[in-house]
Amino acid sequence: MTDLAKKRFAQLGQQLQYDQLSTVRRQAEGWRNGLTGLTGLVGVVFVLKGRESVAGMPGVWRWTTALLLVAAFVLLLAGALCAVRAAHGQLGQGTWLSGERLLAAVLDEVERTQSAVITARRLSIAGLSAIVIAIAVSWLVPVKNAADPAGSGKDGPYVLVVTDRGTECGTLVVGDAGAVTIKQAKAKAESDKEAPQKTTLDDARQWHRIPADDVRSVVPTDGC
């Protein structure tokens, strides 16, 4: 009994010797498209991210986030180039077109293409991971908010309040028809150094209320 399937697979194997480079190229194109889609997926998943910049983050985390994003860009760029190289070959590569050399060159190129796909996959995954970590850092690290009246953020705006008794400087807390209230900067700095966890309570103690009748002028300033 003749098993023709055995012969057909032998014929297929012979045919694949000629076709395997284009087969591998198509495979690489699929991987390239898949990796590109995966990269775009990050933008879709994290469209609800809460922060648009690293401003206000503590210095260490700001630099960590920046380095992660730079690393992600480099990794994704290298991964994309590897994927394109796998799908379309190396520019300027040549070989003698004799039968033996061509067969060896095809086998070489098949292996290089496979290696490039694997490298592209690793680089893309590393780059995507770096982006995800950077976004997670920006989500989770607490940010100093300049608009926070409790004083957990940057001080300011500073004002110089000129009174009959002299000049006082501090952060403007509130000003109305009855008085101008400032938080004296020097006292706050000392308080933060000694007991940072009691900042809010100390802030209230450092507020200095100056009656409006005593105030001669209030002048904005960069610092005290």
Partner: peptide, 20 residues
């Protein structure tokens, strides 16, 4: 009759192993 080594998918070889 010539039979060449071919690939059917991504290589499973580990780092540094001679692919040739």
């Amino acid at each position: 009759f010539r039979v060449a080594y071919g690939v059917l998918g991504p290589s499973k070889r580990l780092w540094g192993r001679d692919p040739h």
